[in-house]
Every structure is written in structure tokens, then in C-alpha cells.
Simulated scan of single mutants.
Amino acid sequence: MHEKRPGSFYVLAAFFIVFMLFLYGPTITIGILSFQGPQGGLTFPMRGVSTHWFHQLFQQQSVGDIWGAFRRSVALGLMVMVTTVVISVMGGLAFRKRFAGSGSLFYLIIASLIIPSILVSLGVGLIFSQLGWDVHWATSGFGAQLTWTLPFGLLIMFAIFNRFNPAYEEAARDQGASAWQTLRHVVIPIIAPSLIGVALFGFTLSYDEFARTLLTSGSHNTLPLEIYGMTTNVTSPVLFALGTLTTVFSFAIIAIFVAFAVAAQRRRSKLASDAGKATL
């Protein structure tokens, strides 16, 4: 006989269901409304079902510079992702040993997480303006977003290297490997799944960032800023169609990174297995 579940199980299950509805309900609602018919509006009830508003989305004149904003967001996300991964690895390696001021530097790094994002955006924009530099998404916007992504990447790398077994590096050096060869052929393959996680954080946090880009993007909007602008002048389900496509794109990016992480984990397991056999 199956053991009877306690009443608390059903209470927690109901709470979990409500939480999931709260989390994904708005996204699901937008997805449904994006398939309104040509006469549909921004609310229920739906007036027909079609892909009319998706077709409208691809007409440049109906949505402003949405595709230019999308390209800028992707380019900026890739820039932030690569920079976050490289600096996070370098920082993680540096913090493996204590050095003068390491504690203060650590708290200084993570302090940007607790500063209101709009203040960071304002501060970076003012610095560029005072120095006479152009405020642009690829310069000031890039710097402002790094204040958001780098602390996450560094915290992940700190956790990874705190658990990293230095015996792997010692074995490589015993075999005559240089410091660069040890990093390239031993350290990087072992931490590869975590690097993919840092890359995912870097790209997605940048791609979706609004507040830190608001005052640092200059005259060219990124995608979040363009969508915000559309909410004031677009009164048709084309806005929902855009939301649906960007959501699908975000999930696709996550799926791609997860696939890379799984492949890296399998390669890491194979390397460990081969190393174990070699020592027998």
C-alpha cells in the first residue's frame, strides 16, 4: 500500500502551482494574445486566431528599429559574455592565493550588485559626458553592463576554484607541462562546464538588461529599450508577437548553452576516465 501523504504536501504542492502560474502566467498570456486575428486587441477575448501580427512584426515600418535594436543587443551580449568569461577566469585564478588587499577588492567587486542599477547607469553616463567621450551602447553601455555581469561570473569562478584539486596541475607540471599548457590542457577542460555557465550568465544578463543601459546607450536603443519605447506608441498585438519571439529566442539560447555544458561535462568525464586508466 502507498503511504498516505501528509496534509502539508498538498499545501506545498498548491503553493508551488500558484508560484509557477505567477512566474510563467504573464509569458503564457502574451504568447496566447500574440496569435490574435487581424481585428484583435491587447486584451481578451480573442478575436480570431492567426499569425497576422507576426507578419506585421517583420515589416520594418510597423515596429521602428526593432531589428537594429535586436542586432545591437546580440552584439553587446556577445561582447559582455566574452569579457566576463575571460576576466572571471583570470580573477578566479588570482584569488586562489591570498594577497594584500584581496578582501577589500572582493567586497569592492560585489558592491556593484547592491548599488541601484539606475545609479550605475547615471554615473557611467556622466563620466563619459564629463570626459568628452561619446555615450554609446558599445562603450559606455558595455562598461555599465560589465558592472552587472562580472560579479556573477567572479563569484561562480571563486566557488569553482575553491573546490579545484591542485593535484591535477601538479601532475601536469611533473610531466613537464608549462604554466600555459597546464592552463590550456588541464584547467580549462576541467572547468569548461562552469565557463559555459558564466558565458550564459553574461549573455542573458546583458541581453535583458534595461536599467544599466537606459542612460548609457546613446542615440541607438538596445532591444529592451526599444520594447519599452514601443509600449508607449504601439497599441496592437504586434508588441505581444515581439515578446513571444524574444522569449523563444531566450529559451533557444539557454538550450544551446545547456547542450554545450552537457557536451563539456561528458568530455570532462572521459578525460578523467582516461587519466585514471593511464595511472593504472
Rank of each mutant, 00 (worst) to 15 (best):
L93S: 07
A192L: 10
W137R: 10
F95T: 12
G153Q: 03
S129K: 13
A100C: 00
A167Y: 08
R173N: 10
W133V: 00
F106L: 09
T149M: 00
I114Y: 01
I196S: 05
G123K: 08
L155Q: 07
W67A: 04
G132C: 03
Q130Y: 13
H185N: 12
A177G: 03
L155E: 02
I110R: 04
V120Q: 00
G132L: 02
T139P: 09
G197M: 00
D174E: 11
M79R: 02
W133S: 01
A192Q: 00
V198N: 08
I110Q: 07
S117P: 11
L195V: 14
G125Y: 00
T182A: 10
G141V: 13
N165V: 02
L155A: 12
H136E: 15
S88Q: 00
V89E: 11
G68C: 01
V198D: 01
R71K: 15
L126I: 14
M79I: 14
V86Q: 02
R163G: 01
Q145M: 13
F106V: 12
R72F: 06
G153N: 02
Q130D: 10
R71V: 11
E170K: 12
S194N: 14
T139F: 09
P193F: 06
V86Y: 00
A171L: 09
I160C: 11
A179G: 07
G143Q: 13
